[in-house]
């Protein structure tokens, strides 16, 4: 009753132009509208995701579930060789991957978004071009670059040799010192269009009179950018950081194509996504239990940190207004 009364009042005096808040149709009608999407999403996504936590607490023999073992699988995950070495290493790799990608794509993305805004000639063409790689499959991006960086027949090394820079030519993806930085650079080539688009949308939303007011007050272009534009872009920085973080910790196909399923050479490009796949589908007899434990750890990191970051950025925004 308490729920229906206010909405009946609203039906008598409808808000102009808005249909929200009107008396809802009977619950049977509502259920018919909601059920298909709800069931599809709950059965094939949410329920299995919740089950992963449950799985991690049981003993597994292949795909057969045994008894409750508490945190045993987590103990295996952190203690058993080679997992105990691969997990911290891959965690570090994903973190470096995130920081490296973030540093380059935020600076370049923002720079190109600003330049694009002031640019007249070819604006549409340039924007479309910058975003284009983002449409390609990560796996295909990886394969294209593995051919380009091929030590003998790849255009990068042959060009370096042709212009007398033989000393710089190297097996980019075969050398453990260059492999991971190269993966990050390939990823920047792949993703840059996305932060650029978000920054462009953020810049377009800033009213022009703000910059005018600042210039009347005697602020130069840099000062205006630093003290007017940048603070107004805080929510965009937040969105870019969180989405980059999620994507960086989910990276899989790109590294598979560039370094193989083992993240070669010698694990130099190995990441959590590959480790999870190997643990689950190429592991031993108890693979499902240990991999579920890894899924729980990864879930806690990805979801936990992105939630914390959202909260932090929303506080930051409140502080600005």
């Amino acid at each position: 009753m308490a729920v229906t009364t206010p909405s009946t009042e609203r039906q008598v005096r409808p808000k102009p132009g808005k249909g929200v808040g009107r008396t809802a149709p009977p619950w049977k009608t509502l259920a018919l509208f909601l059920a298909p999407a709800f069931l599809l999403y709950a059965i094939f996504m949410v329920f299995p995701l919740a089950q992963a936590l449950f799985f991690s607490l049981f003993e597994w023999k292949g795909t057969a579930r045994g008894g409750f073992v508490g945190l045993h699988n987590f103990g295996e995950l952190f203690g058993r060789f080679p997992l105990n070495e691969q997990l911290p290493r891959d965690l570090l790799h994903n973190t470096i991957f995130f920081i490296g990608t973030m540093a380059i794509q935020v600076s370049l993305g923002l720079l190109f978004a600003v330049l694009l805004q002031g640019n007249r000639f070819g604006k549409q063409f340039l924007r479309t071009t910058y975003v284009l790689p983002f449409m390609i499959s990560p796996l295909v991006v990886g394969y294209v670059w593995s051919l380009i960086l091929n030590p003998t027949f790849g255009p990068v090394n042959t060009t370096l040799k042709a212009i007398g820079l033989d000393a710089l030519a190297r097996p980019w993806l075969g050398d453990p010192t260059t492999a991971f930085p190269v993966v990050i650079l390939v990823n920047v080539w792949f993703w840059l269009g996305f932060p650029l688009l978000l920054f462009a949308a953020g810049l377009a939303a800033i009213p022009e009179d703000y910059a005018e007011a600042a210039s009347i007050d005697g602020a130069g272009p840099w000062q205006t950018f630093r003290h007017v534009t940048m603070p107004l872009l805080t929510p965009v920085f937040g969105t870019v950081a969180i989405l980059t973080f999620i994507r960086a910790f989910n990276v899989f196909g790109l590294v598979w194509a560039l370094g193989g399923v083992d993240g070669g050479p010698a694990g130099a490009t190995d990441v959590l996504g590959l480790l999870f796949y190997r643990t689950a589908f190429r592991g031993g007899v108890d693979a499902f239990g240990v991999a579920s434990a890894l899924a729980v750890v990864m879930f806690a990191i990805i979801f936990g940190i992105s939630m914390l970051a959202r909260w932090w950025f929303s506080r930051l925004e409140e502080g600005l207004t």
Partner: peptide, 20 residues
Amino acid sequence: FFLSGLLLPFRLAIMPLFLL
């Protein structure tokens, strides 16, 4: 409930999904 899906890392559900 629906919106949470925009942030959830669904690949981690692969093993329960496989059994289902």
